[in-house]
Structure formats: C-alpha cells, structure tokens
Write a protein that binds this DNA or RNA. Structure first.
Lengths: 256, 256
DNA sequence: CGCCTTTATAGTCATGTTGACCATTAAGGG
DNA sequence: CCCTTAATGGTCAACATGACTATAAAGGCG
C-alpha cells in the first residue's frame, strides 16, 4: 500500500506522498474486527453472539467484536476482543486457533459511518457458559441458524465462516480444536458431522483418522463411557500433525 | 462491527455509540488495497510490480495498489486500481478472477502512518506488455523471486499469494485463468508446474483433467503446433466447472 | 525421401484410498 | 440372561493414482 490522500491521484507513480498530507483531512475509515466463534454442543453447531442493546439493530444478535486500537494489529485486536467479550481465561484464549476469514468493506454495511471490518474465526471446545463473571461477558452460545436476522452483514460473515471451517476440516487437523484435551473418536467424528451436516461411516472415519500419522494419539490405558451405554471408547488427544494428506473429503458437495 | 470511539470502551455492551462520537477525533486508519497479480510467461511465474520513486523504499519494487475511496468497497477499489495501474482494457479487467487474499495490519508496516491493507490476488493470461500507453501504466512483469527486497511487507504478501494460488490449483479449475481463451493441455500443465515448482507426468495429468467433467472442453477440429516441433496439440477452452473433485494434489508437500 | 527428434496421445499395471458392508467386543437395562 | 447400544476390527469391490510403455504426427536434416 501507499500513503497518499485518497483524492490525490494526479497520475503520479504509486507511493507519492503529497506534501502536507494530513491524515485528518478526510472522513476516516474505522477499522474493526468481528469474531465468528464456533463450538459443537450436544451435536449442534453453536456460534457466540451478543444481543444488541442500541440502534441500529437493537434487540438483534450480533457478532462479538470491536475497534482496532491505534497501535494494534487486527490479529491482536481479535484476540483481545475475544478475551474481553467471552470472559474466558487469558491462557485459554492465548492457545485458541484464531484465523483471519476475510475483510468486509461495503460502504453501507454500517449505516452510521464507514467501517471496514476484518472478520476472524475461532474454534473452541464446548466450554461452560462464556460469562466469566466480570462485566465484559455478555456473549452467549446460540445454535447455528436459530437466531433471527443478525445485525449488519453478520449473517453473511457467519455463513462464510461456517463454509470456511467446513472446507478446512477437509485438509487440516483443525477438528481437534473443537474437542476437549482428551476425546473419543466418536466425539471427533461428531465434529465433522455437525459442521458438514452429513453422516459419516464410523469404521471408515476411524480408519482414516488413525491412518493419518500425528492426527491423534491414543491416551494409554484410559477410556470413557460415552454416556453409560455401549462399549467404552478409547481416549485420544490431538497429535502434532496439522495437515491432512490426503484430505478427508466430505461426501458429495452438499451443504446443510 | 460496531461504531464506537476506540477509547470509548467503558464496559458497555458492544454497539454503544458514545454521544458526540466524532470520527475525526482520533488518528484515522488509512485503508488501501494491494494487488498480487500473477501470470505465467514462458514457463516462469511473473508478478506485476511497480518501481517506487519516493521514500520510503525508493527504487524498490512494490505491489500495485492504492487507497480505497470513501464510497468504494475494497473489491471495487482493487479492480479499479488494477485497471488504472496496468492500463488493461476495462472489459478484460472486468472478467478477471480477482480474489481477496487477506488483510495486513501490522501497525508499523508503513513507517509514515497507520495503514491497513486488504490484499487481492489475480491470475491473468500472458498478455502483451501491461502499459496501455496511457500515463497510468507503470507496472511491469517481473519473474517471481528475481527482485531485491520488496517495499513494505509486500514480499510477505506476494509469498502468501503464491502459496494461496498453489493451494487453489489443487481443488479448483482456476488454472485456466492463466491461459488464453484457447489453450493446449500442455500449456495448462505448464501452469501447474510453474506455480507448484514441480514436474508432472504428462499422460497422468491429461487423464485427470479430461476425467473431470466441465474442466476443459475440446475445441472442435482445431489444433495448434506447440512451436513447430512435435505433433500438433488439440485446443481446449475452459469449461463451466469451477471445482475439482477429487482434487489434483501436488506431489509431496514441497514448495519451491 | 527416409530417419531422428520432439511432442501429443493412448494404453497398462500395480498400489493405495474410499465407500459399503459385516462381525465382534464390551458396556448398561430390563 | 438376553437385548440394545456403541466401539472396534475386518472384508471386498470400485476408483484414483503413480510409474511406465507404446504409438501417432509433426519438423529438421542429411
């Protein structure tokens, strides 16, 4: 990029800084981050949302987020907002997978002023309620799709995020981010089924996961009853691998 | 996102607009677009670059790009800048594949002021020189890697863009964007080999491409000599398909 | 004109992965 | 003690892939 007043394009080479350039001379852009945070709860995909109190869109759900501070990268702002708005412990937030989705910049996406927003996606395991008890935690888990109209263009962001995550599950080991530190292969499979909205064959899923070196590691000796019924499942934890080669493709290109 | 002065975070619910909010009250962010435009020329990947005339980074190569105008989305800004800086005909630019890469926001990425830049990637066929003759076309094709230090964080952007494109070739039909309207399968294969920096088996590549419905369509009757020598190749054009199922994976996860 | 080189195109074959199954094991519930 | 449930262990055919070999059609060259 180049610093140059937006109206100062006199055909010069890119990078010309007009003398006397004044950052305050034109209507500024506000830069914000929006967070599309997902978890899987009892087999249902949930997003972290906040109920808006003010116009516009008062009463509607909205994504957590906020302004990028003057000396902050958007990555940092996203992590800070996530910690603030969820009340999750800092060390947990520090370890979360947080990924830039894309930037939304329609001039009219906020009716009040020009706001360019960088959207991020995070995957978190099913946690106790997000309120940490402090004043900053108003976020709630809402089942995907079971909200009315979201504020601003947040419905589009959330849909894009879900699609991106679904795609990433195919060729990365990201699914373990949805799981607690120790999990069963059945729980891991449910992550895939929930995000993709499909049903997978259990033995085949198992075969694929175990055949990928470093995807999961078996926890020696431990096992857990899935809820009382059935044979207890072996516990696993996430392995060091991050990519899935070859990918685990979702059956036929259908979405939910 | 939400409109709220960056220092106005008094623990209120997200979306609180402090009364008397003044968009000019704080140091504004500048928002720009940067373009990572690639083509394949004689088997070598080239990027579209501009030679900087001013400090900082005077004399260094930089990506084309510029400010987002007050009433413009970044998508629109990217396409406008591409047309302006390359001098390519508008209708050609309108049809190009232009994709948002990601947003770069390090507070110090521009030493002069706070600039958040949304990077875009475009793939274009090998065209005559980019200068349209007008004053606006200073961009030049430079072989990938054969430049010194790029200005700002543009080296990182360009590397990210190349990696993204390489990945997209695996599971989309995007490779045809690098080719002229009619092309041989050998030319298409060279796109893959150039971007990936690998060599592919010709019969296998051919089998895979032809087995994917809608990837390419044979142009009836036509054929072209590849340069005089050898059997003339059948001509193809891009088909309606956009995704590649199953993907065409690059051999072993090595980069150039 | 014939032979060599070059490039496109057509197969072949062994291997690995996937999808669709069936079988067994280990728990809880009546 | 049998039934249900869920995890786990297999089989088998279809398909996709990687490594090759073979043929066809052009130009170059003696």
């Amino acid at each position: 990029m180049t610093v140059r007043g937006p109206r100062a394009r006199e055909g010069g080479a890119r990078g010309a800084v007009p003398e006397g350039y004044d950052p305050h001379a034109f209507e500024p852009f506000a830069v914000t981050v929006d967070l599309a945070v997902f978890t899987v709860r009892e087999g249902v995909l949930h997003a972290l949302l906040i109920r808006r109190g003010q116009e516009p869109y008062a009463g509607a759900w909205a994504l957590p987020g906020g302004f990028v501070l003057p000396r902050e990268s958007t990555d940092l702002a996203a992590r800070r907002e996530l910690a603030e708005e969820t009340g999750l412990p800092d060390d947990l937030v520090a370890g979360l997978h947080l990924e830039q989705l894309r930037t939304y910049s329609d001039p009219d996406r906020d009716p009040r002023m020009r706001v360019v927003s960088v959207a991020y996606t995070a995957l978190v395991p099913d946690l106790p309620e997000p309120h940490g008890g402090g004043d900053a935690a108003h976020a709630e888990w809402v089942a995907f799709g079971s909200y009315g109209h979201l504020a601003f263009d947040h419905a589009e962001i959330l849909a894009d995020a879900r699609e991106r995550i679904g795609a990433k599950l195919e060729y990365t080991c990201l699914a373990t981010s949805f799981c607690p530190p120790e999990f069963t292969l059945g729980e891991l499979q449910q992550v895939y089924e929930t995000v993709w909205g499909t049903v997978l064959d259990r033995p085949n899923f198992r075969r694929k996961v175990l055949a990928t070196p470093g995807f999961v590691e078996q926890v020696a000796g431990a096992s857990r009853l899935t809820g009382g019924r059935g044979k207890p499942a072996a516990l696993h934890r996430a392995g060091p691998a991050t990519a899935l080669h070859p990918p685990l493709l979702r059956p036929e290109g259908r979405q939910t």
